[in-house]
């Protein structure tokens, strides 16, 4: 019970190596973009982090649906684990997006659909954690968490869609024009390869972190049960 499973150790090593390879490719292999320069290289891990964030939240919604049908606490643990990791990576996504935007669009923040949606998503899942904190009974906490994970994930595409047509009908001109056009660049094969490796590395990292977080959740559950048993 206490020792880390062999498969997890192997996965950790593979994820670590993959991340190192991806970072190496970003730093040394990927070409310098002609206009934006070095900051464009943030792009690889920025996109990969966004992908992991979406993966986490989507997985949590699926885990929520399965929890509501099966009522096994492991699905709830999976849901929290996925959301927590999703929050970390969405935060990375938003902050790196801002860092990229500063030199390229000349502003830390634009109300562009993707950036805005990612931030609202972050708020939704912070609310999720606050909801869970306010409920003591583990079974009820799991149920409510599942419901909110489903509703929250559903609202994400709706938010994105709303903001998107909000912008197309009334385009907001910020600084030097349409932000998506200013930051755009065409991908060379080396860039595509680097992006692909980053995506794979981050996906592996996601699975490894999820597993660790799941084990933490299981340990937490055991401790909670011990505590309840002692109190009674």
């Amino acid at each position: 019970m206490s020792t880390t499973p062999r498969a997890l150790v192997v996965l950790d090593v593979i994820a670590g190596l993959a991340l190192a390879v991806a970072a190496g490719m970003v730093f040394f292999y990927a070409p310098l973009e002609r206009v934006m320069g070095a900051v464009q290289k943030v792009f690889y891990f920025h996109v990969a982090a966004g992908w992991v964030g979406m993966l986490g939240f989507g997985l949590a919604a699926v885990a929520g649906i399965i929890y509501l049908m099966r009522r096994r606490s492991r699905w709830d643990l999976l849901g929290v684990a996925a959301i927590e990791i999703g929050l970390v990576f969405t935060l990375i996504n938003v902050v790196t997006g801002m860092i990229w935007a500063r030199p390229v669009w000349n502003t830390w923040w634009t109300w562009d659909p993707r950036l805005t949606t990612a931030t609202i998503m972050e708020l939704v899942y912070i609310a999720y954690l606050m909801l869970r904190q306010g409920i003591e009974d583990p079974e009820r906490r799991a149920r409510f968490g599942a419901v909110y994970a489903i509703v929250g994930f559903l609202s994400v595409p709706l938010t994105f869609f709303s903001i998107r047509i909000f912008r197309t009908i009334h385009p907001v001109v910020l600084g030097s024009g349409d932000p998506t056009a200013t930051g755009a660049f065409s991908m060379t094969p080396r860039m595509t390869q680097t992006l692909m490796v980053s995506l794979v590395a981050f996906s592996l990292l996601f699975v490894a972190l999820l597993w660790h977080r799941l084990r933490l959740g299981e340990l937490g559950e055991r401790v909670e049960q011990l505590r309840l048993k002692l109190q009674s």
């Binding site: 609202i120 939704v124 609310a127 606050m130 609202s155 938010t159 709303s162 903001i163």
Partner: peptide, 12 residues
Amino acid sequence: ILLFPVVIPVVV
């Protein structure tokens, strides 16, 4: 806190 982020599309 629960409601506002989810209901944004309706409000927009």
